[in-house]
Computed example of a mutant assay.
Amino acid sequence: MTDLRVAIAPDSFKGTATAIEVTTALAEGWLSVRPGDSLIRMPLADGGEGTLDAFELAVPGARRMPVTVAGPDGRQVEASWILLPDNSGVIELAVTSGITLLDPLQPMDAHTLGFGQAIAAAIDSGVDRLYLAIGGSSSTDGGAGALTALGATFFDEDNRPIAPGGHGLASVASIDTSHLRAVPAGGAIILSDVTNPLLGPSGAAAVFGPQKGASEAQVAELDQGLRRLAAVLGTDPETPGAGAAGGTGFGLIAWGAAIASGADAVGTVMRAPEAVSSATVVLTGEGRFDGQSDAGKVPSYVRSLAEQAGVRPMLVAGAISAEPTGFAAAVSLTELAGSADAAMGETVHWLREAGAHLAQSL
Rank of each mutant, 00 (worst) to 15 (best):
A163D: 15
A188Q: 04
G285Q: 01
L57K: 12
G213D: 07
F55V: 07
I8M: 13
T18M: 13
L169Q: 07
S138F: 09
S293R: 08
A27Q: 03
V348R: 13
I259V: 13
V95Y: 14
T16G: 09
D3Y: 14
D141M: 03
A45W: 01
P237E: 12
L336G: 13
R41H: 11
A19D: 00
P85K: 06
T16S: 15
T140G: 10
A118Q: 06
L132N: 00
I253S: 08
A70I: 06
D290V: 03
G50D: 07
G136Q: 01
G251F: 00
R228W: 01
A340V: 15
L199C: 06
P299Y: 03
G166F: 04
G267Y: 01
D124T: 02
L4W: 15
R64H: 09
S138W: 04
Q308W: 06
G116K: 04
T23Y: 12
A317R: 05
P35V: 06
S215D: 02
A254H: 10
G168Y: 06
K212L: 09
E157Q: 13
L315D: 07
T177W: 13
G98F: 02
L198H: 07
A265H: 12
A257M: 08
G326D: 01
D73E: 08
S192A: 15
A144Y: 08
A58E: 02
P43M: 11
G145S: 05
I162D: 03
V77D: 08
S278N: 12
N196T: 06
A54P: 04
A206I: 02
V316H: 08
K14G: 03
T347H: 14
A79M: 05
I99M: 06
G29S: 03
A173E: 02
A146L: 05
P104I: 08
T23V: 09
Y131I: 02
A340G: 12
V281R: 11
S304P: 04
G48V: 08
T235Q: 15
A17H: 05
A45H: 04
P72E: 00
V90Q: 03
P299D: 03
G116H: 01
A9T: 11
V69H: 03
I20E: 12
P10E: 13
P10L: 09
G126F: 08
L101D: 05
